[in-house]
Design a protein around this nucleic acid. Structure first.
Lengths: 321, 321
DNA sequence: TTGAAAGCGCTACCAG
DNA sequence: CTGGTAGCGCTTTCAA
């Protein structure tokens, strides 16, 4: 490349990186740019970061659980915000392998920061990543992990809000939907626990309701409904809530008269049902905030990792409860 | 690393890559493995692919348009399948930049293959990628691109199926929802065209209906409904269909008596509405198939890029039409 | 069976 | 102002 522009490789590097320390003559500059354009020259990221000793890659393993629209919007924001700070966000598909084992694969890319959604990463994995040069490891999940910054998504609070709401409405026999789908346990368990805590000491009873995300499973559950004797149900999220609510209505259960239903996530679609679905609205941290946290952590890696409570949860009462 | 195991770097390389060409004594082997574990040694992917001259990275730019659950399932499959073939799938967040410009950024990573969802990549971009060493460039979109393998997602056919279905049902004044959201035009335009083609010569009229994905916009459209005089509507996809159908029902329009509604994508949620939503089911290619296509293309890069028709579309009539 | 050394593409220092 | 050059971590050929 340099040869064809008639200059040395160093000069090329200077020109393309707009190095300020050295001044390159305008004609040379032009020749370099022209040659680059003509050859379709593109710098080699691997070589660059090898030389530099660090990269600007922020690695985000793709979540191993079925993620909803909420998560995808958040992800988009985050990518945009990190992009503005000149990081390159890379989503790495490492499905099927568990965290600490996967961490090794992630470390091969020598990312400057790693954002791990969900549980699954242990202290071991954090160590591997840090040793490989990651200047920030951030977990987004229900529990903090030794050595990593934690964005604590307190799903227990989501359940707690839902439980309190139902109790306030005078409901005493509360069902809690627990998805049967793989990988959702880490999210459903705290929600269930939250409901239990909210109802503890009120004399209300909590019943666990396993449910797969298909009509048949919902119909089966609805058929058992009279025997269950429940006057309320917290349905994990809006999608399960919509599924269950429909099945209940088809089985002749009146909502909210016989049974109150509340979901979570505040999806637009829940507003379209009749009755309109009550829900727990969840405020994820904004992509911008997370991006800034990452940036701070990268710039001053000495700082002790902090734990931030980042989930706002509030009930949006509508007509189904 | 090598020093601490008491052997040379070459030996380390042999052991960790299980090189078959040379035989390493068992004790040495063990020493290397032990040292690697103790130091938490992880090979440096950049250095490796720099030396090798190529990588096993399959790059997939994150789509610049709001992607639905359909796409995310497909993506998961694909990652799994490519992972099995020992490729590393990397999703690159390059939102906001247009294809040919972004291609340059993608090329910096020297991926062995690039899968580009949606339109936006032109022949220029393909050239850049190929010159940078990509052995396969595959587009997943409405039109083929010069020089790239194309998986042709024929959304025109989706519209055509919907249009034919409505015509068969005797509908003559058909509305077609066109989302106002950014980036969806490339998908909605062919669907609209498909409806037009299906209805051409039947004497039926087609009306374009811009709609944003929120309740207010839907309510405004529903309020104009009587004046529009439509007896059917194809609502771009199930989500817009659900939104519009609810607004129409609230405005007193009977479905399907006054107006038939059909969506697309066959989301489970559509089945939960009353009346149950008719839809056009779309068969995406399986992740496994795409993975194999990529693998073939990588292994024999001489082959002329092919164009494959990969979208099965069929009407699933339910109660809303 | 192991070690020494070259070189992948790039940047940063230092000499011209 | 520009060019030569060392060296990032790794693999691979050649020699010992």
């Amino acid at each position: 490349m340099a040869r064809l522009a008639g200059v040395s490789r160093a000069t090329v590097s200077y020109v393309l990186n707009k190095a300020t320390a050295v001044r390159i003559s305008e004609p040379t500059r032009r020749r370099v740019h022209a040659a680059a354009k003509e050859l379709g020259y593109v710098p080699h990221a691997a070589a660059r970061s090898l030389r530099a000793g660090h990269s600007r890659v922020v690695l985000m393993p793709a979540p191993g659980f079925p993620a909803g629209p909420l998560y995808h919007r958040f992800l988009g924001d985050l990518q945009l915000a990190l992009g503005r700070l000149d990081y390159t966000v890379v989503q790495y598909g490492s499905m099927g392998v568990d965290g600490d084992e996967a961490a090794r694969a992630w470390a091969e890319l020598r990312p400057v920061a790693v954002l791990v959604p969900g549980p699954g990463l242990g202290p071991q994995g954090v160590t591997v990543l840090k040793r490989s040069g990651a200047r920030a490891v951030v977990t987004l999940g229900p529990r903090p992990v030794e050595g990593a910054h934690a964005l604590l998504m307190d799903f227990e609070a989501v359940g707690h809000r839902a439980g309190s709401h139902l109790a306030e409405r005078g409901r005493r026999r509360v069902g809690v939907v627990v998805p049967e789908e793989e990988g959702l346990a880490a999210f459903s368990a705290p929600r269930l626990a939250g409901v239990r805590r909210a109802l503890h000491g009120t004399g209300a009873a909590v019943t666990e309701l396993p449910l797969a995300y298909d009509e048949e499973s919902a119909a089966r559950l609805a058929a058992r409904w009279p025997g269950l004797g429940l006057d309320a149900v917290f349905a994990y999220n809006d999608e399960y809530a919509m599924l269950l609510m429909r099945a209940l209505q088809d089985a002749g259960v009146r909502i909210p008269a016989d049974t109150a239903v509340i979901g979570a996530d505040d999806l637009m679609l829940g507003r379209l049902l009749r009755p309109r679905l009550s829900t727990v609205h969840i405020d994820l941290p904004s992509g911008r905030e997370l991006a800034e946290l990452v940036d701070r952590a990268v710039r001053s890696p000495g700082t002790a990792p902090g734990t931030h409570e980042v989930l706002g949860a509030r009930v949006v009462p509508r007509d189904s409860s």
